[in-house]
Write a protein that binds this DNA or RNA. Structure first.
Length: 480
RNA sequence: CGGGAUGUGGCUCAGUUUGGUAGAGCGCUUGGUUUGGGACCAAGAUGCCGCAGGUUCGAAUCCUGUCAUCCCGACCA
């Protein structure tokens, strides 16, 4: 097989040729996951799990800074408990997995494997909340949940996935609303600062709300192929769950009151979002803040005297400030270059005999492949600056993609034309707030409502669907 | 849940039409030569052909079922 043929065989599918294939190629070849024998359940490999751990660490810090405590709830929910809140159970019933037997014995009441833990938190809150002095309760848990999805894709939609779910109880409606908004902002800040991923903040329409919620806030991100990804949600429950589960407290005037609740969550789907926001035809591009390896040291001509020693010396030194790895395997330099580009390591540090003579090494950025020669004495500051710059550049590039692919439309025909001419993206259009028009647009154009953005713009005064008066601007799009 | 495709050493696949001793390349192991963009030579190891039934003297190949993966759609978040 010639060199050229071999390259074709080993290359990942180009994203402009087949985005779905490109994505599944990357998750496998960058060694993030492996498939398992159960549909929709994947092995998260060390490199993929390390990214999740970094996401967890950063988010967990933000949760703690906003006053939250971590707890752990049971994996199982008795059927009777799940059924206490009518809308909630109706929303989740079609996709819950049930445990019916313990050993050979049939259970008297079947248990569902948690699809989300509202009911468990509510039961617990009803036990521990008595007085206004007990409020607010600001709990979060990191765990796995199971939703029996019909179609699955690694990270984007799996039957079992990892997430965090915050559940809070407050004395007043106002406090709960503030919490819902606060946590949506925490998510949006995290996406921008840590994942370099721009998001649109907004509220879901009535038909798109979480089962049992009074209001669902969402952050929506636009992927490279123009499809939208719901990256995180924050729900305001009012006192609906409190009434269903009898969560009451005695206020200062000695009267019994229902609590007001929220819940909010993000999942391993964020990893999928990260891949589809920054990846390119050479593979993954991992934002520096969550990269398991920030700097990969590649000794060049490592058999020559002094090269390996120098490389290891640099590793020991840089490890104090960054997540650093060295690859001194026998693979060729070219192979290693391609390998760590596939894995999206932000900076490659090349060190060879010629560099050592000059007291310098080569730094190559993953995002734009720019090379620079850096003196040993200036390495830390150069790497630090480069990591920060990569982070900003990734954000700007993703934001540009989002802006370039956001279109304003006034009629259904315009939407259809834009989609066929320019491909998928965000459509901004006015809406009369009727569910009927929302559905009609979905049927006619294929795009569904993503959110009612907090940042409203007056694009006109007529509904994109029925032409009647409209004051609400909606983001529409195809979604994952 | 509907339509389509696929399942053969670790990976990518050929072989299935027309049943007859399981193949290639890559990777892996050992030794040697190499090393600044996916190196080369030599010698090796690796398979109940997704799983379960059936047809047959004989099944990777034909039939039935089942599981998994991918794509499109519906559904869901």
């Amino acid at each position: 097989m010639s060199q050229e043929q071999k390259k074709l065989v080993e290359a990942i599918t180009a994203m402009e040729d087949d985005f779905a294939k490109w994505y599944t190629d990357i998750v496998k070849k960058a060694d993030l996951i492996d498939y398992s024998s159960v549909k929709g359940c994947m092995v998260i490999r060390p490199y993929g799990y390390a990214i999740w751990e970094n996401i967890q660490k950063d988010l967990d810090r933000r949760f703690k800074e906003t006053g939250h405590e971590n707890v752990y709830m049971p994996l199982f929910i008795p059927e009777s408990l799940l059924q206490k809140e009518k809308d909630h159970v109706e929303g989740f019933a079609p996709e819950v997995a049930w445990v019916t037997h313990g050993g050979d014995e049939k259970l008297t009441e079947r248990l569902c494997v948690r699809p989300t833990s509202e009911t468990l938190f509510c039961e617990h809150y009803s036990n521990i909340i008595e007085s206004h002095r007990d409020l607010p309760k600001l709990y979060n848990q990191w765990c796995n949940v199971v939703r029996w999805e019909k179609t699955t894709r690694p990270f984007l939609r799996s039957r079992e996935f990892l997430w965090q779910e915050g559940h809070t109880a407050h004395a007043t409606k106002q406090e709960a609303v503030e919490e819902t908004e606060r946590m949506l902002n925490v998510y949006a800040d995290f996406c921008r600062e840590t994942l370099s991923m721009p998001v649109v903040k907004g509220r879901k329409t009535e038909s798109d709300k979480f089962a049992g919620a009074k209001a669902t806030y969402t952050i929506e991100a636009l992927m490279h192929d123009g499809k939208a990804l719901q990256a995180g949600t924050s729900h305001y429950f009012g006192d609906g769950f409190a009434k269903a589960f009898d969560i009451t407290y005695t206020d200062k005037d000695n009267t019994l009151q229902y609590v007001h609740q929220t819940s909010w969550g993000v999942t391993t789907r964020l990893i999928g979002g990260m891949i589809m926001s920054h990846g390119d035809n050479n593979g993954l591009v991992v934002p520096p803040a969550v990269a398991p390896i920030q700097v990969i040291i590649l000794p060049v001509a490592q058999h020559k005297a002094g090269v390996l020693e120098k490389a290891r010396e640099l590793k020991a030194r840089l490890e104090k400030s960054f997540r650093v790895n060295i690859d001194d395997s026998d693979n060729s330099a070219g192979w290693k270059f391609a390998e760590y580009e596939m894995k999206g390591v932000p900076i490659r540090l090349e060190i060879g005999p010629r560099d050592i003579e000059k007291e310098q090494c080569v730094l190559v950025r993953r995002d734009n492949r720019e090379k620079s020669f850096i003196k040993f004495s200036e390495l830390e500051s150069a790497i630090d600056a480069m990591l920060k710059d990569i982070s900003v550049s990734l954000y700007e590039k993703a934001l540009k993609n989002q802006n370039d692919r956001t279109y304003i439309c006034h009629t259904a025909d315009e939407i259809i034309n834009v989609l066929s001419e320019k491909g998928d993206g965000f459509i901004k259009a006015m809406w009369c707030e009727s569910e009927e028009c929302e559905e009609k647009i979905k049927e006619q154009t294929g795009v569904g409502s993503r959110c009612i953005p907090f940042e409203q713009e007056a694009l006109g005064d007529k509904c994109v669907c029925c032409g009647k008066p409209a004051k609400t601007m909606l983001y529409w799009g195809k979604s994952y």
